[in-house]
Design a protein around this nucleic acid. Structure first.
Lengths: 224, 224
DNA sequence: CTTCGGGGTAACAAGTCAGTAACAAATGGT
DNA sequence: ACCATTTGTTACTGACTTGTTACCCCGAAG
């Protein structure tokens, strides 16, 4: 169910909630900006409609606070002539705005357009964190906690991912080869190369291996 | 010229059309709901006034059909006590309703209000703002905050929109191709081209990419 | 002490891919 | 039907990634 919070100080609140209910939204009324904030955290809605002319709390502030805590889409209502506020609202992270007076179907259309946008945004694979190292598989980047990020190549990233996921346990050479190149491809020498190159990137000091440990004759392991 | 279709089964049809003509509308008479539909497609009017008590065809059905084919604004006429129908009409996408008997001045005012709504605010896509860039998908324009606006082509605009909506996350090549050309069309080379052309328009300085970041081997991301 | 094997290092070659550009085809407005 | 713009195609370049080969070092076994 698509949930929606509106502000009932708005003169058009009943028309609005009626329209949106008809369009399949669950509408939660809030009595002022602050309570919109409260209700937001209580109900975790899919969409928030904010009136910029909130009596008790500046609508822009509410917008900012909501955006600071989540990326719930926000539609701003405004009266004509407040173009400055609209710009500010969009800068603060609002997703759309509607100028009063608005037509019901326009409101519905916009609400659904906004929802379409946010729901179609792809889910990114979660970064893997071990110790002070964080691997972002999508960007092939390693963030080194205290400082600096390193760009990895695709293969380096794949190897790193495998090692980090199975941290602590020793991964045989063959296993690693398979996980990087797939079965029936790659060989020991290439893996050696890859480990070497990866180490140079994430272990500035070559003398004592900080993360990737060699287990002679068997394989490698990732230690925190 | 503002064009308007009314239904002449309406008892007040002549008063109505007289009033509206005086207010500067061109009035097209229709003999019943069906012919209102026909005339609508013939004349592509700016506004339609529908009587719910159409004799031959249910006014609500007409409303629904019209709305299914366009978003031409609709005003519903109703007699007092038909609140249910009004509700249904609004549900079906009507923009306003007027209770009979109505005063001519009120009718004109409402008609113009409705027109103002639909003409003064963009209907579907809202501007998207990220950082100092604002994309107007309707006009395919990018405003660059401090200075200047750039005209984009359709494809450039689509790409820009996708990137801005998903700002911060890495969009794989395939995803971008789908979002611009749809599935089973387009290829990497064309996307490369498109990115190249878009960059030349929004990033005057080619040396350091300001917005569109390349993630080698994966895709692109829009950074603020 | 020498030999042998495996890992680490390095240099180099081959391959891949993004950026760039020029040009051709398609589209759209007059 | 013509012109301008947009879109699709092909090709080249340079940077970076990946694969290949060789050599060094060190410890263990003969």
């Amino acid at each position: 169910m698509k949930t929606l919070i509106v502000d009932d100080d708005l003169a058009l609140a009943d028309v609005l909630s009626f329209t949106m209910r008809r369009a399949g939204f669950e509408v939660i009324m809030a009595h002022d900006g602050q309570s919109a904030l409260d209700r937001w955290s209580d109900n975790n809605p899919d969409l928030i409609i904010l009136d910029l002319n909130l009596p008790k709390l500046d609508g822009l502030k509410v917008c900012q606070q909501i955006r600071a805590q989540s990326n719930t889409p926000i539609i701003i209502l405004t009266v004509r002539g407040e173009e400055d506020d609209v710009v500010k609202g969009l800068e603060l992270g609002a997703d759309d705005y509607i100028v009063k007076p608005f037509s019901p179907r326009q409101l519905v259309a916009r609400a659904e357009a906004v929802l379409r946008r946010v729901t179609t945004s792809p889910v990114s694979p979660a970064p893997i964190q071990v110790g002070e190292l964080t691997l972002d598989p999508l960007r092939s980047e390693v963030h080194c906690g205290n400082e600096g990020l390193v760009q990895l190549t695709k293969l380096e990233c794949k190897l790193m991912e495998t090692l980090m996921i199975n941290r602590g346990s020793v991964l045989p050479i063959e296993t690693l080869i398979d996980s990087v190149w797939g079965p029936s491809a790659g060989d020991r020498v290439m893996l050696k190369q890859l480990v070497y190159r990866l180490r140079r990137k994430i272990e500035p000091n070559p003398s004592k291996p900080k993360y990737i440990q060699t287990v002679a004759g068997v394989g490698y392991t990732f230690e925190t």
